[in-house]
Design a binder for these strands. Sequence first.
DNA 1: GCTTTGTGCAACCATATGATTGCAGTATAG
DNA 2: CTATACTGCAATCATATGGTTGCACAAAGC
Lengths: 114, 114
Amino acid sequence: MKSDVSEVFSALGDNTRRTIYEQLLDRPLGSTATELAKSASVSRQAIVKHLQILESAGLAEALREGREVRYLALARGTEHATQWLIDHGAAWDRRIAALERKASATRPTLRGRP
Amino acid sequence: MKSDVSEVFSALGDNTRRTIYEQLLDRPLGSTATELAKSASVSRQAIVKHLQILESAGLAEALREGREVRYLALARGTEHATQWLIDHGAAWDRRIAALERKASATRPTLRGRP
DNA sequence: GCTTTGTGCAACCATATGATTGCAGTATAG
DNA sequence: CTATACTGCAATCATATGGTTGCACAAAGC
């Protein structure tokens, strides 16, 4: 199975899908697949599939209202992915800083290196 | 073409590739495809392809040293993607807050709606 | 020189992915 | 009741993706 971060990253890695997600974020009351299909360049069925992927990645939620199904964005679904990016970026910064300290112990400075 | 965030997200959306990226982050001096292949469950050629994808997403850099090619992680390649996640998460929070303010003007609360 | 060792290239394969179309089922509106 | 949306399901399709193998090529090592 994919890890949860993987699912979020690959869900957001498709332009059509990220656009859909952005539109959902713009509408706190949600949208239906049919609505979204009107402004999109792909069919309703394609939208439905994207919505299901967003849902299984924890990025959206489906709510039935009569014969309609409204999809709502779940921004909290991005938390783990955001955290992963921040953690790894920060960890890398610390490692580089350590490297620079080590280097400056033998050479004047590493900034502006060869 | 894919937008740059798309490339980063889909690069990180594959488990093998994200693992490779994590390993590169652990080695500020870089690794070669051959080295990485030893601890991986896939062939060197598969690793090479992943490294090229990471490179074209701006997440890694290839440096030739004699007959070896060392790949270094570029943590800054995640900046746009991180920013996108933070921006959209934050924007969503503001919208929800606005909705709740609006709702509390007419109804006691929105939490626990129909 | 000859032999390792690390890369690069190309063909190939199975499966996943993004998309389409057509049709059936079900609420809502008239 | 009938017509009109809106959703659900299934088959289908082309291409992308992640992986493999085999071999040629170049740089070190002996």
